[in-house]
């Protein structure tokens, strides 16, 4: 068909491959795919600084979630407390050990790495400096990690487990639980501020938004 199109003038929806005209959006605008409605571009005013700040928040909360007591169970005079770390290591028996490592990575490792990576990528961009070395690779990996970072799923799992245990014993929630909940909210907020197209643009053009 039309083979003379200039690739630089377009963007393709990653979902449905529909070509769109590339366009610089105002800070509050949002761009969606015309066919499949996937959010393509959503720059927000000072969005990078927000993402960085929220990532910091998330990392602080993550530290709390790891080190504070998570859940405590009481039943007929017996009690047992568990931290997030212990929950992940529940599979550390023998053959299930790889699963343990996987769970630990999914609920703690990958989210933490993603926050750190986002800060690494965005920090120079907010100050109008060119991106750090390997920012491109780092950000791409960050994007690829996203489905595997399951902190929010973990907290839902906690809720389900609590429902199951509720009849058996009294469960008290530790500060780590609330830290985790806050972490989920912060992560969701952060995601709403993030637009990968914008970030890619910023990395590529080395210009601040």
């Amino acid at each position: 068909m039309n083979t003379t199109l200039d690739p630089a003038a377009y963007l393709a929806c990653p979902h449905c491959d529909t070509l769109h005209h590339s366009k610089h959006l105002a800070a509050t605008e949002r761009a969606r795919c015309a066919r499949c409605d996937t959010l393509l571009i959503a720059p927000r005013a000072r969005s990078f600084i927000h993402v960085i700040a929220l990532s910091f928040t998330a990392m602080i909360l993550m530290a709390g979630a790891i080190f504070f007591p998570f859940l405590k169970i009481d039943a007929q005079g017996f009690s047992n407390a568990s931290s997030v770390f212990q929950a992940a290591m529940a599979f550390s028996d023998g053959l299930l050990l790889p699963l343990s490592i996987g769970v630990l990575a999914m609920i703690v490792g990958l989210p933490a790495v993603r926050f750190a990576a986002l800060i690494y990528v965005l920090w120079p961009l907010t100050h109008g400096r060119p991106a750090y070395r390997h920012a491109r690779t780092v950000f791409r990996l960050t994007e690829e990690m996203q489905p595997w970072a399951m902190a929010e799923i973990f907290i839902i799992g906690t809720a389900v487990a609590l429902v199951k245990v509720a009849g058996l014993a009294h469960v008290s929630l530790g500060p780590a639980f609330w830290a985790f909940c806050a972490l989920i909210i912060v992560t969701a907020l952060k995601n709403s501020y993030m637009s990968s197209w914008t970030i890619w643009d910023a990395i590529a053009t080395k210009k601040p938004i």
Binding site: A75, N80, A87, A90, L96, M106, A161, K164, A169
Partner: peptide, 30 residues
């Protein structure tokens, strides 16, 4: 769907009440 695995992990870590009640993950979890 990974929720199930996390539920197993949390239950196994939490419900360790000596011989009264204890929960261990089974091979199916992996």
């Amino acid at each position: 769907s990974m929720v199930d695995v996390f539920v197993v992990a949390i239950l196994s870590a939490l419900v360790q009440l000596g011989a009264i009640a204890s929960i261990h993950p089974g091979p199916a979890a992996a």
